[in-house]
Design a protein around this nucleic acid. Structure first.
Length: 927
RNA sequence: GGGGGGUUAGCUCAGUUGGUCAGAGCGUCUGCCUUACAAGCAGAAGGCCAUCCGUUCGAGCCGGAUACCCCCCACCA
């Protein structure tokens, strides 16, 4: 039987096939065996506007690793996928598309984006709400599936039959239900407050959606004359144009400079309005002039001062950031033009005292980066305090575990100083707020269904609210609304609370905090039991990846280049909890090499398997058949099982345990490294090399050899352990192994290894001794060929068993060491040698007693001078080590308090070092 | 201003409760096309674990301070 397997692994020919098969077979619907536990994770829904970036890929890789791992441990696993309607982002996107259609000639021009946006907004208003929403849905149909396709290609093991969208009818009902319930509970209210207004997007945004940017600016000192003309008071401001809306000047009541002025009036320059000087604790006497102009309509602090002192608010800036009628002569001017004009006039009239440079942080819109305008506006708000309290408690009590630990602190710190949440948006795409206004009696009606008449006055017609909800309002319901809430569905019963949630730090407040609050309020339960915050993927220089910097890696592109498995593994191997990832092509290259290594190990096994008699292969297939209910038990065959088999199974047991432990604690890098090292540097480098002659020899017997069964079982087990990280290559190789009945997928086979049954510390120890022997021989050989002189080496051993082991495994040892013969002598380093036979390509090994066994001093001196300086350096190091050890041994508490084995180890080490030192001195003084 | 982190090999980073861990990958150097793999095999060099104090018999690891660096939040005009 001839088997052709390419030497180089080419993922591009294998991955798409499996990706498609997994989706078509609907492989990842959760099992429903009631004896097994349920495990559920709902995906952080990507925006429909987005396409996959490396952050997603990291997130999905981590999730998929855990999901596959849980699934292979026999749980009923649901990973629920979906997308978010992304109210504001989508609306902007569709507007821009409208603009582009209208002004195609701008294509490629720098100003195109903003021009299209303006034009698109204009066209949106022109076409009206309904038509625009149609466009949005159409856009969603055409573009919203990108992420889905990408996820499928990357092999995310989600249950596509449960795909959800935040504007699905069922989900929308949950949103309305939530709004009504919270309104009825008094947790949602409508009112006129200072909000962050984005003049570009034409909507209010929440505090979280405002980014703060440090920008150079000025502090202008303005003189406000007293009403009676007896002098003036100077105020300092960064926004002189808002002085048109001033309704007071405030000073600190404790400020002796200004105490006498409190209660007097000043005449506002330019407009001539008479306003009072009030005393307020808020004012910092050390800043600026110590006196503040108060503009309640355009500054949150001033608004508060206004409330405390009963000051009116005069809006001088409108929703488009232009000056209002109230701005008198400046009406109609853009806010920045108005600033220039006001400053010009103040200067001309002598009210501008002085100017100084002042860095200020301005709030900009998260979406469009326009400077947001704080202004008075009627909006819907959610009362946070009563909701936050339970959300704080469940985290404090660890009913929700937030990991890594430091994010727990950040969460709690943030939750303890939350403001009410502005949830209404003056947008069209999104969940419309279920409220109606009676135009006869102004009654506000909030209801699930459209009311027919005003319940208060029965007359008048009802006008529906036009605002929609903040996207995050609906996202907050994700863990339960996706499972059918508010209906008591079977899914909700089984999979709520979610077992786990994984997200990036950037949405901890936007999303996690709100899910916890909503979950506690609406379901009286935590939305998930554990929350793991993953790292940020940065570029090789630790810069954030961004389109403008041009340093983004496209997941699909690098996937094509290196293979999905390699990229996944590179991400996992870099994903140490709590630290960002500096991601580079180097990493993907090295794990592509790893994939290739796996491929070639598989190729080696499969090719030789093909040379076996048919009947032997069938026997192997039976041996590899998983035991129902128990899963695969990697217990080696009884009977003639060799030392390397016992060693590799024992190692496999340890690795399995380590990997499980690491994944249980989200230490992906450790899990990845563990299996990487086992597969390459234990399984391939030692085990496979050791058994090679047995595997490659021509088998003619009808009976499969134990060596083959052991090898196949270890290999299959290794594939199981690798599968969560590298699903494609492991699926492919696993599928090709002989089997009594055709298997479906490695991902659906439970992997149980009864570690206790195969752990074998004695065999491990023996094999390690042999490894040391071989390595020492290789070293000696390398040095011999280098220095063209009689080589020597040292072998560590606690007893003379090494000689015994050597006799027993002579053939393999010589083969792996690449030697024809090994000669042993007993004796001390530098002492007389016994029967040394310098044969061609042979190596003399001196078997040392434990006391004399130390790494270091080599006898083979090359260049005498270089050797001398090396010895001197070694001597210095040794001296220090010995001094330290001596101090430790002689210290008071050491013998009485340190564990016995530690004391013994120290004593032994001290003896060794002393011996080594003695020799060194001899060596240096010798010639 | 408040909060959270970082500083370990040339580079990117591991190092879980203090004691045989000073480690990995990449890079560098030396030998090898050994019939699975040159995306490979066998070796080697390279670190005062930021600095200073402290706790301890013993400190990359715990405590404090210092120096740089990073991130997040914030209503000082």
């Amino acid at each position: 039987m001839e088997v052709e397997i390419p030497k180089v692994y080419s993922p591009e020919t294998i991955e798409p096939r499996w990706a498609q098969a997994w989706v078509e077979q609907k492989l990842y619907r959760p099992g429903d065996d009631p004896r097994r536990s349920d495990f559920c994770l709902t995906i952080p829904p990507p925006n429909i506007t987005g396409s996959l970036h490396m952050g997603h890929m990291l997130e999905h890789t981590e999730i998929d690793i855990l999901i596959r791992w849980h699934r292979m441990r026999g749980e009923n696993v649901l990973w629920l996928p979906g997308t978010d309607h992304a109210s504001i982002a989508t609306q902007l996107m569709v507007e821009r598309e409208l603009g582009r259609e209208a002004l195609p000639q701008l294509e490629g021009r720098a100003e195109a984006k903003s021009a299209w946006q303006r034009e698109g907004q204009r066209r949106r208003l022109e076409m009206g709400r309904e038509k625009f929403l149609e466009r949005c849905w159409q856009w969603k149909e055409e573009n919203g599936g990108t992420i889905r396709r990408q996820m499928q290609r990357l092999g995310a093991s989600v249950d596509w039959t449960r795909d959800r969208f935040t504007m699905d009818p069922g989900y929308s009902r949950a949103v309305v239900e939530t709004f009504v319930r919270l309104y009825e509970d008094g947790l949602i209210y409508r009112g006129k407050y200072i909000v962050n207004w984005c003049p570009r997007c034409g909507t209010a945004v929440s505090d979280l959606e405002v980014l703060h940017e440090e920008r150079p600016g000025h502090l202008w000192f303005l003189r406000y004359p007293f009403e009676d003309g007896s002098g003036s008071i100077t105020v300092a401001t960064t926004r002189p144009e808002t002085m048109l809306g001033d309704t007071a000047v405030a000073v600190n009541p404790a400020d002796l400079r200004y105490q006498a002025f409190i209660g007097r009036n000043v005449r506002l320059p330019l407009l001539g309005r008479v306003i009072p000087i009030v005393a307020d604790e808020f004012v910092d006497p050390t800043f600026g002039s110590g006196a503040v102009k108060v503009t309640p309509a355009h500054d949150p602090n001033d608004y508060e001062i206004g409330l405390r002192h009963g000051l009116p608010g005069i809006a001088v800036i409108d929703l488009e950031a232009r000056m209002t009628e109230a701005a008198g002569p400046y009406r109609g001017l853009d806010r920045y033009k108005a600033r220039e004009a006001v400053l010009r006039d103040l200067t001309a009239q002598g009210w501008l005292e002085r100017t100084q440079g002042h860095a200020l942080s301005v709030g900009v819109c998260q979406r469009c980066h326009s400077v947001v305008e704080p202004l008075l506006s009627t909006q819907w708000f959610m009362k946070i305090q009563p909701l936050a309290q339970p959300a704080i408690e469940v985290v404090e009590e660890e009913r929700i575990q937030i990991l890594p630990e430091n994010y727990r602190k950040i969460y709690l710190d943030w939750m303890n100083r939350l403001h009410d949440w502005c949830i209404s948006r003056q947008l069209w795409w999104g969940h419309r707020i279920p409220a109606w206004y009676c135009d006869a009696c102004n009654e506000v009606i909030v209801a699930q269904e459209t009311p027919s008449t005003c319940p208060k006055c029965q007359g008048g017609s009802l006008q529906p609210e036009t605002d929609v909800l903040d996207t995050w309002f609906s996202s907050a319901l994700w863990p339960f609304a996706t499972l059918g809430w508010p209906e008591e569905t079977p899914d909700l019963r089984r999979f709520y609370p979610n077992s786990l949630m994984i997200m990036g730090f950037d949405i901890l407040f936007f999303w996690a905090a709100r899910m916890i609050m909503m979950g506690m309020k609406l379901t009286k339960d935590v939305p998930f039991c554990r929350l793991y915050i993953h790292a940020l993927v940065r570029d090789a220089e630790r810069q954030k990846m961004s389109k403008t910097k041009g340093n983004v890696l496209d997941p699909l592109l690098v996937t094509e280049q290196y293979g999905t498995d390699a990229v996944r593994f590179a991400l996992a191997a870099s994903a140490a909890p709590g630290t960002d990832i500096a991601f580079s092509k180097d990493k993907m290259e090295s794990y592509r090499a790893f994939a290739n290594k796996i491929w070639n190990a598989g190729r080696f096994i499969l090719m030789n398997l093909a040379n076996l008699p048919e009947i032997a292969r069938e026997q192997l297939g039976v041996a590899l058949q998983p035991v129902p209910e128990l899963g695969f038990d990697a217990m080696p065959v009884a009977g003639d099982i060799g030392l390397p088999d016992r060693w590799v199974f024992s190692r496999l047991a340890a690795v399995t345990q380590q990997l499980n432990q690491a994944l249980a604690e989200f230490r992906f890098h450790e899990a990845a490294y563990t299996i990487y090292h086992f597969f390459w540097h234990e399984f391939c480098d030692w085990y496979l090399e050791w058994v090679k002659p047995e595997i490659t020899r021509a088998h003619s017997e009808d009976k499969i050899s134990p060596a083959w069964i052991n090898l196949a079982r270890v290999f299959e087990s290794a594939l199981h352990l690798l599968h969560p990280f590298m699903p494609f290559i492991t699926e492919e190789l696993w599928y090709q192994l002989p089997r009594a009945s055709r298997p479906i997928s490695i991902s659906l086979t439970a992997f149980h290894l009864v570690s206790e049954r195969v752990a074998d510390p004695v065999s491990e120890k023996h094999f390690e001794t042999i490894q040391e022997l071989i390595v020492a021989a290789r070293n000696a050989k390398a040095e011999a060929s280098l220095q063209k002189q009689k080589p020597s080496a040292q072998v560590a051993s606690d007893d003379l068993r090494v000689l015994e082991l050597y006799r027993e495994h002579q053939e393999s040892i010589l083969r792996l060491a690449g030697l024809q013969a090994l000669n042993f002598t007993r004796g001390r380093l530098g002492g007389e040698s016994g029967s040394v036979r310098p044969v061609n390509s042979s190596v003399e090994l001196r078997l040392l007693s434990p006391e004399a066994r130390v790494g270091g001093a080599r006898e083979s001196a090359g260049d005498a001078a270089a050797e001398g300086s090396r010895l001197a350096r070694d001597k210095g190091k040794l001296e220090q080590q010995i001094t330290n050890l001596k101090k430790q041994l002689e210290s008071d508490g050491f013998r009485s308090r340190a564990p016995e084995n530690v004391v013994r180890a120290a004593e032994q080490r001290y003896a060794e070092l002393s011996e080594q030192y003695r020799k060194l001195v001899e060596a240096t003084l010798g010639p």
